[in-house]
Amino acid sequence: MKEVDIKHLSKLANIQLDKEEEKILQKDLDKIIIHIRKIQEVEVNKTPNTTHLSIEELPLRSDKKEKPLSVKEVLSNAQNPSKNHFTINRMINEDDS
């Protein structure tokens, strides 16, 4: 059963794999999934009821301004910044506003 479709997953993960690596990774993934499937054996009906590990409550921050980074710092790691913006190939055909 080929549950793990590497072409679909590489799209979800947004990684463009070379054909060679794709073949190797497909094999690796199939092997790993067999091991992970072990979790299907466990009886999970009587599990305790918590979604989060941390027992702490979510702390709330007061709505006070803090100093942002300077534009220079913000762009300090950017490739080809322009007019104080980050740049990327033309983004087309999406629903941005």
Binding site: R61, D63, K64, K65, E66, P68, L69, V71, V74, L75, K83, N84, H85, F86
Partner: peptide, 27 residues
Amino acid sequence: KTVTKLFCGCPASFGEEANTNVCSICL
């Protein structure tokens, strides 16, 4: 209508110059 952003203390104001209300968190 908050003064700051949802997960950091950067001002949430409108119409400022590009990338002047940005910190490590919202980046």
